[in-house]
Simulated assay, not measured.
Amino acid sequence: MLDIIVNIGQLSINPSWPGDALALARRLRAFVTGLQVVAVSPSLMAIPDVIRSLAAEEQEALGRQDWWREQCRHAGIDGEWEVIRGISARALAKRSRLTDFVIGELKVGDPDAALGFDDATRALFARASPMLLVPDLWHEGLQADRIVIAWNGSGEAAQAVKAALPLLLQASAVQVLDGERSGLPGISPPPLPLRPWFARHGIDVHNIAPTLDDKADIVRNAIDLAHVIGVAEPKVAILAAVETVNARMPSTLDAAALCKMADRGQITGALLDGPLAFNNAVSAEAARIKGIVSAVAGQADILVVPDLESGNMLAKQLEYMGHADSAGIVMGARVPIVLTSRSDSRRSRLASCAIALLLAHHYRTSPP
């Protein structure tokens, strides 16, 4: 039987919480512990009034036991109520290590909330068990029909995927965004055998080959990100091997279709051109020699590649041969997802976090 903790914090703005968490636990046939952490601040423990206040808060929390048991009974599952006192993140992290995973709520609806400093996030950095964090603005239940895994090959990623196995087994589609980078031959350990692991558990992982509709969404997401970081009208180059449309090269057909979609107002907020070969997209001189007249050629802000493989190779070439700075962000979700590699520099990780914060601030006023 699975053992799940539902982290109950302050009152939620989501009326379906924690009912959605209990419904998920019922589908997984799990035992559920409702947990409330009475937060302790060591610097204030010498003040008598603080000690009395903590004792009163703990008694109030213990009084919620009947409420929780009724919630479990109504959901048709076995569960127990637990109250612990301690430094919030450390206490949650320690208690979580005796469970399969934790379900918690991520506060994104409060514009004054400090992103990345909530108890759940800090507990993860304190080596807590994997967590399923549900945005407080989410009202559509926790039935995971399609799951996208942002994979960087780290031990933490492997632990999270293993903990998510019950969810993956229930999903109708599982896709992997593989951002793992090879280390030094003969020195670094080989990549983890993720796909054979999926196969042994009967999970069919889909290869990501974007359709025209997928590419249109990718372009829209990239344009949104460009707007967030201050590029008012980004220039988007749709890359292919050549700059002319060729019926035997699907990437050129997609590029032409995307540009026509922009002409018809299906993609807005940017200038699109394609197909363009890489040199024409980044070099005005190359575009001039080839006689390409374009507002995008030679000055592209966004490069849209035909598929995951070419994008992966291009990014690594820019980083390792062109000495470009990089940042890893997954777009298209309801909250920003930082995707970095184990080999990424501190500068790259900070850049990823900075962009995630910009996106999170934007999502508060303009949800995706």
Rank of each mutant, 00 (worst) to 15 (best):
L169G: 06
P191F: 02
H201D: 02
D145Y: 09
A150Y: 04
D217L: 15
L142D: 05
L169T: 14
P130E: 03
L168P: 00
I187Y: 14
A157K: 00
N207C: 12
W197R: 03
G183W: 01
V174L: 07
L165M: 13
A160W: 01
L194M: 11
N207V: 12
S172P: 02
M131L: 14
D178V: 04
I203P: 00
A126W: 04
L132A: 07
R146K: 14
V176M: 08
V161G: 01
I187G: 02
V205K: 01
L124D: 03
G202R: 05
P196D: 11
I149K: 01
H206L: 14
D145R: 15
R122D: 05
S188Y: 07
K162R: 15
L192E: 08
W138P: 01
L142K: 02
D214M: 09
R127Q: 15
V205G: 03
S182D: 15
H201V: 01
A199P: 07
P190M: 08
R200N: 13
L142M: 10
G186F: 04
I149L: 11
P191C: 04
D178I: 02
I203D: 00
S182L: 15
A144L: 15
A173P: 00
L132Y: 02
P185M: 03
S129C: 08
L165R: 07
P190R: 13
P166N: 10
P166H: 04
P190K: 13
S154M: 01
S172V: 10
L169W: 09
